[in-house]
């Protein structure tokens, strides 16, 4: 118990504990998933900074915290410990360096921008179409019900194999691609976007992605080859209807962190 109260023990426990929390506990939450290594590292680093602040913000605690370290470095009766650490730590560092230097076949970390910036205008089936300020024309024309049904049929015939019945990006072909197809059923995906953005992504597909969308593994087909303008608008409308999300409007604006 006495050891538990010591700032040094506390610090070590806190850092290890938070690492374990990020690595093992977060994936246990309902609907959660394993956390990427980079994120675990980032979080642990932040937690470690916090622990360092904690032990050093108060003079008394700081002295206490330093005591065992100084003792290890200086005390005569800790000669063996000192020697041991002087051996083990360099060896560990050597091991880490060896691991890093060794060629590995593991997959490399990637960063993909989910929502790259759209161009100001696109060429759609040979025509120029300005995306900026573009609204879904179907919302002000004809029966919404009908557009929804059209969109639904198009979705089920074309999009469902990858994006799935549940709109969760896990259709029966979804697992074959990387990145996995976009899920529409969560906040933070299409509700952050104007419909014109969605239109652009559907019309131009993976091959139409700008550089920040690389690596170009996106399997999104170029739908302008298959669908008409109205059909793409209809399916866009369907996506929002079905997922219960609302498209971002062009009206009042602000930013959205990503």
């Amino acid at each position: 118990m006495k050891h538990l109260k010591h700032p040094f023990t506390q610090a070590v426990l806190l850092i290890v504990g938070s690492w374990a929390f990020f690595k093992f506990v977060i994936p246990l939450f309902p609907g959660s998933a394993p956390v990427p290594q980079s994120v675990v590292l980032q979080f642990t680093l932040i937690a470690a900074v916090g622990v360092l602040v904690y032990v050093s913000e108060n003079e008394e605690r700081w002295t206490q915290f330093k005591a065992p370290i100084t003792a290890t470095l200086v005390d005569a009766n800790k000669k063996w410990l000192r020697g041991g650490l002087l051996t083990v730590i360099p060896l560990f560092i050597g091991f880490v360096v060896f691991q890093a230097a060794r060629p590995t076949v593991g997959s490399t970390a990637q960063l993909r921008s989910i929502h790259p910036a759209p161009p100001g205008q696109i060429t759609f089936q040979g025509r120029s179409l300005a995306l900026e300020g573009l609204e879904n024309p179907l919302r002000s024309r004809g029966s919404l019900e009908e557009h929804y049904e059209t969109g639904k049929a198009i979705y089920y015939q074309n999009c469902m194999p990858c994006h799935g019945d549940l709109l969760d990006g896990q259709g029966h072909f979804g697992h074959g691609f990387n990145p996995t197809p976009l899920a529409f059923d969560r906040a933070g995906t299409i509700d952050n976007l104007q419909e014109s953005f969605v239109f652009w992504r559907i019309a131009k597909g993976g091959p139409g992605l700008p550089r920040e969308g690389t690596p170009w593994n996106s399997a999104m087909p170029v739908w302008e080859d298959f669908l008409t303008e109205d059909e793409i608008w209809a399916v866009t409308m369907f996506l929002y209807e079905q997922s219960g999300l609302e498209p971002r409007t062009w009206g009042e604006e602000g930013e959205e962190h990503d």
Partner: peptide, 15 residues
């Protein structure tokens, strides 16, 4: 930032 395995485990680029 994640490897493909990690992306696969997360079920997409978003955790």
């Amino acid at each position: 930032i994640a490897s493909r395995d990690e992306f696969a485990a997360m079920g997409g680029s978003r955790h």
